[in-house]
């Protein structure tokens, strides 16, 4: 039997305190939902194995403290992320406005090729909605991100969001490998060309010497 797991990626959940990052993570990894809010004070993570195009991918999803006072510390964790899920609460306008700040922090601290998506959580609470789907969509477009409205409570779009960001990471990795192979090819071509040239030079020299 061949290896069942080929890749491991690290994803990071970012967003204001109370937008439901921990709930989303629990829903995705354990299929459970607990509406009581216990602030994550620290950095937690869970593992999950998903299949993308027949490839088994293990993702390590980091759940961070959303509270502002911990942000100088949590920024430290951005560096190792390959994918980031920005989360806001559709019933909390401020959490949506703060996405700009979170995105700015990521720009500063995360690797350049980090893949990001935007998720508006609590999509089931339509009656207390403060951020329209269009606003979310528009913000995502501004940052060139894909956008989902999801609900950890009903499980709607939760897996889709996590899987989508993993797909993006996977694609980015493949691009990297292709680029590497591409540059390797052109390098080899160049070397071959030079060798050819130098052997020609030798040849001409020799004829000259004769």
């Amino acid at each position: 039997m061949a290896k069942q797991y080929d890749v491991l990626f690290r994803l990071l959940l970012l967003g204001d305190s109370g937008v439901g990052k921990t709930c989303m993570l629990r829903r995705f990894t354990e299929g459970e939902f607990d509406p009581s809010h216990i602030s994550t004070i620290g950095v937690d993570f869970k593992m999950k194995t998903i299949e993308i195009d027949g490839l088994r991918v293990r993702v390590q999803i980091w759940d961070t403290a959303g509270q502002e006072r911990y942000q100088t510390i949590t920024k430290q964790y951005y560096r190792r992320a390959q994918g980031i899920i920005f989360v806001y609460d559709i019933t909390d306008r401020a959490s949506f406005q703060h996405i700009a700040k979170w995105a700015g922090d990521v720009d500063e601290n995360a690797p350049d090729d980090v893949q990001t998506i935007l998720v508006g959580n609590k999509a089931d609470e339509e009656c207390s909605r403060q951020v329209t789907k269009e606003q979310g969509q528009k913000l995502a477009e501004t940052y060139g991100m894909e956008f989902f409205e999801a609900s950890a409570s009903t499980s709607s779009n939760i897996s889709e969001s996590f899987i989508r960001v993993t797909e993006l990471v996977l694609q980015a990795q493949k691009r990297d490998v292709d680029n590497l192979l591409g540059s390797l090819d052109s390098y080899l071509d160049q070397v071959a060309l030079q060798e050819e040239k130098s052997s020609q030079d030798n040849h001409t020299q020799r004829t000259c010497a004769c």
Binding site: M1, K3, Q4, Y5, L8, R10, F45, R58, Q60, R80
Partner: peptide, 13 residues
């Protein structure tokens, strides 16, 4: 994070 990243695929397999 680096420590965690060390895949222990063999065992899982």
């Amino acid at each position: 994070a680096q420590i965690l990243a060390m895949p222990q695929f063999g065992l899982r397999d």
